[in-house]
Design a protein around this nucleic acid. Structure first.
Lengths: 237, 237
DNA sequence: GTTCTTCACGAACACCGTTCGTGAAGAACC
DNA sequence: GGTTCTTCACGAACGGTGTTCGTGAAGAAC
């Protein structure tokens, strides 16, 4: 901070960090798809061409924003339990964090992220798996599988949050608890499944309430447990 | 077919089926992202506005193309073995089919597809799971989990195929076997992992060759086996 | 023969990612 | 201090994009 606290209005000079931070903030505010180079540059009070000094692509910018988001994840510690409990906590946190930044997780499905924060989290995942006695080849494949699970789960959560926000804006205010909105969200799907002919799709028809219900945390932790159980079954075999 | 075989040049009248079929063909040829409403309309020798008579959105059009692609999947039969073998064959076929249509699988990550072919395949998946003695609630969650696995695996395969095509075009022709190209594909990642400091990322550094190697079918079938094993472990517990 | 409905589509709107060229401002050097 | 040289900001523009609107023409219904 300089001696004269008055003299720093104007416009703070551009920097990669500022660009990436602004991008992530805009993703939260407007949604992943709506964030264009123009919008980012507008938020920084400059023109779109200025960004290309620091970034090759929109993709590269989004990859940087992705890594910044992953940086919010706090690694689990001893208090969280043994290796398996810690792994579950870690994966849950990654999913929750990515899911809170709209569709930023789609970055991980397009190309493999290799930012420092992503690597830090991946290192911890692999370390925990090894701690659990999973052999090396299985660790590698497990990290891949967990990566897929994380990205697609985060997208699912983001879609759910988006739908809730949309509903909150559409519906009359003051009403509508979270439970109601979540129910409303899956209502359309439920209607589709239930209206299917029981002759042609007997199983879907029979399971319709189970297919759409029980939203959120329970489902996610169940799915994660299945993957780890499968990993251990594979190992002991 | 009319009596006069000569008289049907001009332009066949537009139809939803023709639009969707053209869209899927263009996705194969140009890639998912490159297929715009304008390109589709150009291929049909008309203007972009004409498509909106049959389709609300680009998203809706892509969802229809997605279902058309799923329609190519042949359901397994008795010859494929017991319920588990059949389930694995079914999932593998879905992944392979979707993966062969570039990033069309991304449709399933944005919204839940409910086209007739998708429902047919989902019905069969649920039927097989039930046949295996998995209880109803677990069936529902398993279908969800398998759906995530299918979509993200298909995207991974599509990315691999795209990279191979890109390399085939870039490299001098006549050379380059598929193995070489696949190796070249993961070489960049391998370099990244290997160049990490062993102090900061010891596990990634140690597992680097395992993380990028062993591409393709083996990995996929291993991952699928893990999920089903986990499902059964969950059940017997 | 006349109304009415459906569909094809030209034109336009408001955006998009990206590139090019022109400067200005600061650093490095004499 | 003056001069070169490098770096960075950005106005303008190119070739696209999804989508809407309004105008017709062609066929169906009466």
């Amino acid at each position: 901070m300089p001696a004269t606290p008055r003299a720093r209005p104007e416009k703070s000079t551009l920097s990669l960090d500022a660009i990436v931070a602004t991008t992530l903030a805009l993703v939260d505010e407007l949604g992943f798809e709506a964030v264009s180079m123009r919008r980012v540059s507008l938020a920084l009070e400059t023109g779109p061409a200025s960004l290309y000094v620091y970034v090759r692509d929109r993709r590269e910018l989004m990859a940087l924003a992705y890594d910044l988001a992953v940086g919010e994840v706090v690694l689990p510690d001893e208090a969280d339990g043994d290796w398996r409990a810690r792994l579950e906590v870690l994966v849950d946190r990654i999913v929750a964090t990515l899911g809170s930044h709209d569709d930023i997780a789609s970055v991980a499905l397009v190309d493999v992220p290799t930012g420092p924060h992503t690597l830090r989290v991946m290192e911890e995942m692999l370390r925990l798996l090894r701690l659990g006695g999973v052999d090396d080849a299985a660790c590698a494949l497990a990290a891949d599988l967990l990566g897929q699970y994380i990205a697609s789960s985060a997208l699912e959560i983001a879609a759910r949050l988006r739908a809730q926000r949309e509903l909150r804006r559409t519906a009359e205010p003051g009403r509508a608890t979270a439970a109601v909105m979540s129910a409303e969200f899956s209502a359309r799907l439920d209607t589709v499944y239930r209206s299917l002919s029981p002759e042609e799709y007997p199983t879907i028809h029979a399971l319709a309430p189970l297919l759409t219900g029980g939203g959120g945390g329970d489902r996610a932790s169940w799915k994660l447990r299945v993957i780890i159980d499968g990993l251990l079954a594979q190992h002991s075999q």
